[in-house]
Design a protein around this nucleic acid. Sequence first.
DNA 1: GTCTATACTGTGATAGAC
DNA 2: GTCTATCACAGTATAGAC
Lengths: 213, 213
Amino acid sequence: MSIGSPNFNRQAKRREATRQEILAAAWEVADEQGIGAVTLREIAERIGMQPPSLYSHFPSKMAIYDAMYQQGWEEYLEVVCQLEPRLPAQPRAALATVAAEFFDFALAKPTRAQLMNERVVPGFVPTAQAYAPAVAALDNLRMTLTRLGASDEAAADLFTAVLGGLVSQQIANEPGGRRWRLLLERAVDMYADEVGMPGPRLTARTELAGSHS
Amino acid sequence: MSIGSPNFNRQAKRREATRQEILAAAWEVADEQGIGAVTLREIAERIGMQPPSLYSHFPSKMAIYDAMYQQGWEEYLEVVCQLEPRLPAQPRAALATVAAEFFDFALAKPTRAQLMNERVVPGFVPTAQAYAPAVAALDNLRMTLTRLGASDEAAADLFTAVLGGLVSQQIANEPGGRRWRLLLERAVDMYADEVGMPGPRLTARTELAGSHS
DNA sequence: GTCTATACTGTGATAGAC
DNA sequence: GTCTATCACAGTATAGAC
């Protein structure tokens, strides 16, 4: 059978389906027991395979992590692409929307966020191909920030740091809670003030302790 | 031999010395090859022991990680305790000093910072005892922030998020570099402005793109 | 091409001799 | 307290059935 044969499409589809099945099982294990609990045996058992059979679809366990990493960022990229044309006109409101989307996306599946943003798997470094959608998403963010008024590259770095910090604190200290989620609008205002973004604040400014005599 | 016997002190000291030797070897491996590369065999080899002998001093590998975690936070706690009486009078300068100390402490040993702040070891959760110095350090930070004018609890959470975000971005994207380190003073100003901290800014405010006609 | 069967290496962990 | 021996399980790899 050659590439052009009638059976090619069918077999390729079946192969891709198996690949997705493997990844789905891997995500299942990761969500239930943590990224570190993902083993080839566990994946194989869930889809009724023998562990070595997985090597017909992925060259190594790292390749599975790599595909998961890529999948996570592709999902996020799609979210922001769908979001962008529907952003509010007000710069601060737009920034708050972007921030909320990022935060909620991360907290919806903390395990996915950990794999995407932290180094939870010892020795795992995403390949260039898997890293591509992450770069695209970051470029998109930079573009949006520039459009909204945060001109310099440093401003973009500051924004990702603030946003990433809030997400990471929420996941590490209170997964499932909203303690840092509630700080999101205030953080956006803080950032918007810093980069001189116009428009009224989204949140009321907190008074300094002792300053209200 | 009982607890009160003359040999107790000597034996206890020797035992504690061995414990420290094990931990030192573990840090050595972690610094050289990453936290995930720490194995009982590698530790044992470095101090001329057989791997199972480590179990005479630590009940499990997790217990070793736990002791490392505690050690890291104890080191940081000592740093901030020595720092506090020497803080500048100006609130913003004081805040900048605290932030710089935290950042530089973390970046001095990224592996230590990862263990302290991120979930790099699958399944590892610090025990209450190991977590104690971390709580003490955080309480200290909260106290300092309150004294400097950031009254509410939310303000403290916001500060740790910003600071943690900067550190985490630096470690993840450019370990050994200074890209996010250079944003530290600006971030402190941003935060100080948000909580209404008095005093002049430490950094010049960046103009909004297009606003300088 | 895909799956089964089997084996190799390295890991954390335990039991028992000294 | 340290050692030797051993276990269970991980990821990985290869050979061979179909």
